[in-house]
Structure formats: C-alpha cells, structure tokens
C-alpha cells in the first residue's frame, strides 16, 4: 500500500473530514450560542456576551423577586442523610442524664406507658428535628413546648443519640398483629399517596421520617389529623401534610392501627 500521509493537508480525507467537522462545530455553535438566545423571547439578552454565557449554561443568581413569607413558624432544620451519623459515647452518656426528665411520659426505657411516642431506637435525626421544632415553635404541644426552650443544640443531639442507642422494645399494649392495609403497602397513587412504608420503614426510610412500629395508635391518628387540617405544620415543604390531607378517615384509622400492632422486633429482623 502506498505510504500516503494521513495527517497532512495533502490528504483529501484529512482535509474533508476535518473541514466538515470544523464547519459543523462552528455552524452549530453559532446557532446555539448566538442565534438561539436572540430567538428566545423569554430571555432578555444583555448583549452578545450575555447571550453566549446563558447558552453555555453559566448560572445566574436566583431571581430576587420578593417572596411571600409564611404567617406561621416553619421548621428551620436542615435535614441530610449524614446528620448525627457517628455519635460519641460521651454524647450518649449526657443524653442518658438529660433523658431522666423525659421518662415520665416517654418511659424509662424509651417506651411510653401513655400515648406519647416511643423513642427507644428511633432515628436520631427524627428526635433531633422534633426537639428543634418544638424549641423554635414550628411544632407546638402543651406538654412538650415548655421543655424545649431550655435545651441547647448539644442537649438535643445528646438526647437524640441516647434514645437511638436504646434497644427497640415491644410496646406496652401490643394488640394482635393486623395484616398490612393497602394504604401502607401501596398508597393511593391517584391521590398522590406513596406507600407509608416507602418513608417510614418496611420499604425504605426517608431521612427525618420516624419508624412507626409499636407507636400508639391514638398518637398516630392525632398527628395524621393534625397534618391533614393544618394544625401541625412543621413538616418541611408540606411533605407529610400532602399525604395526610389526601387520606380518608378510614385510611388514617387503618394505617395507625396497623403500625400500632406491629412489634419492632420483626421490623428490625426484616432488615
């Protein structure tokens, strides 16, 4: 075969392929960075350089248009999957001391004899967020609200990791196990209700969502109703109100009774 040089302007293939490719790049770039921005009616272009920058994807600062502020206190906690991931034993110890004042309602082992939430083995992010919200006033409760203002951020972390550290015990009033109702395993797609289990365990856990097995049915019903009618609004961006509003009274009943009847052991064993 003749030893023709490939990367040389004398080679027709080289000239043609590089020429066509370069022409296409230039042509499409002109179209994309100049023609297109000027053709976009919703884009107010401030000159050629601005047109090129916007088409290239240089981010703009978010619009400073004034936003409507809430008339009520919303949660100001920043939730991430990494929060409170590695508690120190010191922190747990301090939490144990602090928790003595909580035992009257939440039980010495973190399992309530009243209809207060069981906290033993609960996710730390959940407990921390609710304490923060009680303190800020995003969530109010006649019993809890007076306690929270005295807690520092570190106190709340300590309490959260201490209760998380406690073993998950069966509730005091376990009823007979009920089979999972449809709302828990399938939700109601057309009403925008995902399965309860996709956030609250069973399927998966969403950061900030508690696991619910063995909680008091009365407590869960009350909270769902409070979310539904807007009495409780500390869920970030309405994530729980969206669901509770769409649930029927019967579904609230079924879901609460189901979770109340579930032992925590099976829940942890399933994972």
């Amino acid at each position: 075969m003749p030893t023709e040089r490939l990367f040389s302007t004398a080679n027709r293939w080289f000239r043609l392929s590089v020429g066509i490719t370069a022409a296409l790049v230039i042509l499409t770039a002109l179209g994309g960075f100049i023609l297109l921005p000027y053709a976009q009616s919703d884009l107010k272009v401030a000159g050629l350089w601005d047109a090129i920058c916007s088409a290239a994807g240089i981010p703009k600062l978010t619009s400073s248009a004034s936003s409507v502020q809430p008339t009520f206190k919303t949660s100001d906690v920043i939730m991430t999957s990494a929060m409170l991931a590695n508690p120190s034993s010191e922190s747990i110890g301090r939490g144990a001391t602090l928790a003595q004042q909580c035992a009257i309602c939440h039980g010495p082992t973190g399992v309530s004899r009243a209809d207060s939430p069981n906290l033993a083995g609960q996710y730390p992010a959940v407990i921390f967020k609710q304490l923060k919200d009680f303190k800020s006033g995003a969530r109010t409760n006649a019993v809890m609200s007076p306690f929270a203002p005295h807690l520092t951020d570190q106190d709340m972390v300590d309490l959260a990791v201490y209760y998380h550290y406690l073993p998950r015990l069966p509730a005091y009033h376990p009823t007979q196990k009920i089979p999972a109702p449809r709302i828990v395993i399938n939700g109601a797609p057309m009403r925008g209700i995902a399965p309860c289990g996709s956030c609250h365990g069973g399927l998966d856990n969403k950061t900030g969502s508690p696991w619910l097995e063995g909680q008091s049915a009365a407590y869960m019903k009350a909270q769902l109703r409070a979310f539904a009618d807007g009495a409780r609004r500390n869920d970030i961006s309405q994530q729980m109100r969206n669901i509770a509003r769409a649930m029927t009274a019967e579904e609230i009943e079924e879901a609460a009774n189901y979770y109340a009847s579930q032992p925590p052991d099976e829940y942890s064993a399933a994972r």
Partner: peptide
C-alpha cells in the same frame, strides 16, 4: 436544568448526523 441551551442545540444537531 443544569445544561445550557446552546449545548442542547449543538447536541441536537449532531444527533441528526
């Protein structure tokens, strides 16, 4: 939302090729 419209246009044109 994270890609500029200009690059979307270029890729669309090259997709035709």
């Amino acid at each position: 939302p994270q890609v500029g419209a200009g690059f979307k246009f270029i890729h669309s044109a090259f997709t035709a090729m």
